[in-house]
Design a protein around this nucleic acid. Structure first.
Lengths: 298, 298
DNA sequence: TTAGTTATACTCAAGTCGAGAATAATATGG
DNA sequence: CCATATTATTCTCGACTTGAGTATAACTAA
C-alpha cells in the first residue's frame, strides 16, 4: 500500500545583506503569509530546471525578478530540507548569501532586531545574562550541564565567545523554545519568552547562517569592500567591520592590521570636512587577491 | 508552446573519508556506469521525501543501505545542480562529508591519486612546476595574467599556498582542461594532458570540496579524533594531520600546539614497544569542547 | 656496548597582539 | 584669535606566539 510519493520542490532563497546606519541588514519582501501577523520574508522562488543553467544563475534571476537589482557577490550558504509538519510537498530550500551596497526603497531589516543577543558593540546585551543564561541553565538542568554547550556558544561564565557562531546560538535558542519559530513549528509554549523578531518559515535560520558565514569570512576574504563605496575612510571601514562582527575594535590595532594585510591604498584625497580632523580616503587594493591566498582581517 | 517542465530529482551524495596507510581516502562503490572504463563512484541515492525526516538522516540511511556502516561525524558540504548536457532530468545533488575510522572490505581510493598536486609532504609535487605551471601560464596568456589567479591558488612563483584551497585548484584545472572530466562534459581536447584519476559525474569535485573543508576544519574543530582509535600516540596524531593537510609539520612545534590547545591528555600507558623509544598513549580530552569556542590545531 | 631509531624537551630570535598614550588637524563658540 | 571639542593618526611597550634549530631520553638490534 505504497502511496504516491510526496512531490519535491526545489526553491532558491536569497539572504541579501548590506550595512546601513551602522547595522547589518537583510532585504525582505512583502510576503504573502496568511493571517494577521506578517513576519518578514526573504526573496525566494522555484528553480527553473529548464532555463537556469546553474543554481547561482537561477538565484540571480530570481533576485532580479523579485527585487530588481543585480547583486555582485553571491555565495551558496546551505541547503535546508527538514520535513515540516502537515505540508503537502517536500521543500528543498537552497539558501544563498548576496552582498550589495545599501539601496533605497527596500525593506532592510536590522539583523540585530532578529538577533539582539549578537550585538556586543556597546556592552554585553542585557538579555544574555538576564534572560538567556538563567533559562538555558534551567533547561540544561544546572550550571554543570549548561557549560556543556551553552556556556561556550554564548560565552557565559567568563568563557571566550566566538562572534561567528551565530547559527549555533540561534539553534540553541530554538531548541530551548526561546524563539517564536519553535512554538510555530511544534506548538510548544505559546506563552513563553520569545527573543528577537521572528521570520517566516525557516528564514531566520537562513539569516543566522548568513551572518555567521559573513563574520567568518571577514578574516580571510576581502568581502567588506562589496559593501563600501569606491572610496572610503578607515573609520568607515572600521565601523563596517564592527557592525558586522558585533564587537568594538581597538582603532590603532585595526589600522595596523589593515595596513599589514595590504588591503587598502591611500588616494591622497581627503573626505569632505565635517567635524574633527579630516580623514584620508582609501580604496581597496585589488592586487591583494593575487598576492595572498587568504586576504582578510584576522 | 511551453513544454512540460523537466523533472527535478534530489539526490544525496556521501563523501566518506578516512586516513589509511598515511593517505586520506574516500570510500567508493562498484558503480554502474556504462562503457568499459569504470571510474570510481561515491555512494549516493535519492532523498525519500516521505520517510527521511531530515536531509542528514536521509544521508545516514543511504550510507547504511549502500555501505552497511553507521558513520559518526556527518556534515553538509555543498549542493551541486548545474545542468549537464543531454540529460532528461535535472539532478540536484546534496553532498555530505562523513568521517569514519578505516574499515576493511571497502574500496578506499587514495585522495592523492585523485589530486596528486595536493601532496606536499615530501616535496613540491613534480607536476606542479613541470606541468601545471607552464600550461596555466600558456592558458592565461603570459606570466602576468597567470598570477592573477593561478599563482596564488597553486603557490607558484614563491607565493604562499593555502592547503585548504583544494576545490579552487581543482576548478582551475577543470577550466583549463587539465582534468578528464572537462573533456567528458564538453568534449574538449581528448588528447590533452589529464592529471589525476577521474571520477564519475561531478564526484571528483565533491571530494575536492570535502578535502578542502576538512583541511580547513582541522584548525578550529577537533575532527581528527573521529579518525583515530580511542588511544593514540602523538606521532600518530601528527602523521594523521600531515596526511590530511598534505604538508609536513615541525614535530616539537606541533606538540607544543596540541598541548596548548588542551586537546589531549596522557594516559600514562605506553604503546606496545616497536623500535626506538616507546611513545606515551594519549586520548582526546572531550572537555575541550566546553572550554573553547573553536578548539583545533591552527 | 654501540649504533640506529623514535620520542620528547629545551632555547632563542623574530614576529604578532593587546592595550594605552601621544600627537595632529580640523570645526565651533566665545 | 584662542580655547575646546572632536575626529584622525602615530608611537610605544610588554606579553605572547611562531618558526626553526638543538639537545636529551628511552628503547631495539647486533
Amino acid at each position: 500500500m505504497q502511496a504516491v510519493a510526496r512531490p519535491i520542490s526545489v526553491r532558491l532563497n536569497a539572504v541579501i545583506m548590506t550595512v546601513l546606519d551602522d547595522s547589518p541588514r537583510v532585504l525582505t519582501v512583502p510576503g504573502s503569509t496568511t493571517g494577521d501577523a506578517k513576519p518578514p520574508v526573504l526573496p525566494f522562488g522555484p528553480l527553473d530546471p529548464d532555463h537556469d543553467r546553474t543554481l547561482e544563475l537561477g538565484m540571480r534571476r530570481i533576485i532580479k525578478e523579485q527585487v530588481g537589482i543585480d547583486v555582485g557577490y553571491v555565495e551558496q550558504l546551505y541547503t535546508f530540507g527538514d520535513r515540516t509538519r502537515d505540508r503537502e510537498e517536500r521543500i528543498i530550500a537552497i539558501a544563498y548569501l548576496a552582498l550589495t551596497r545599501p539601496t533605497d526603497g527596500f525593506s532592510w531589516v536590522d539583523c540585530y532586531s532578529l538577533f539582539p543577543w549578537e550585538d556586543y558593540r556597546r556592552t554585553t546585551p542585557e538579555m544574555v545574562d538576564g534572560t538567556i543564561s538563567p533559562i538555558l541553565q534551567a533547561w540544561a538542568g544546572g550550571a554543570e550541564a549548561l557549560n556543556e554547550r551553552a556556556g561556550v556558544t554564548f560565552g557565559i561564565g567568563g568563557l571566550p565567545r566566538d562572534p561567528a557562531l551565530v547559527l549555533e546560538r540561534y539553534e540553541l535558542l530554538y531548541e530551548t523554545g526561546l524563539v517564536k519559530e519553535r512554538e510555530r513549528d511544534f506548538g510548544e509554549d505559546p506563552d513563553g519568552i520569545h527573543l528577537g523578531v521572528p521570520m517566516a518559515l525557516d528564514h531566520r535560520r537562513m539569516v543566522a547562517t548568513a551572518l555567521g558565514r559573513l563574520r567568518g569570512k571577514l578574516s580571510y576574504r576581502p568581502v567588506v569592500f562589496e559593501l563600501l563605496p569606491e572610496e572610503f575612510t578607515l573609520s568607515q571601514l572600521q565601523q563596517l567591520v564592527e557592525a558586522l562582527s558585533g564587537v568594538r575594535l581597538h582603532t590603532s590595532n585595526f589600522r595596523r592590521l589593515v595596513d599589514r594585510a595590504g588591503l587598502v591604498e591611500g588616494t591622497g584625497r581627503q573626505q569632505p570636512a565635517r567635524v574633527g580632523r579630516p580623514a584620508e580616503l582609501f580604496e581597496f587594493r585589488r592586487e591583494v587577491i593575487r598576492e595572498r591566498p587568504a586576504p582578510g582581517l584576522r
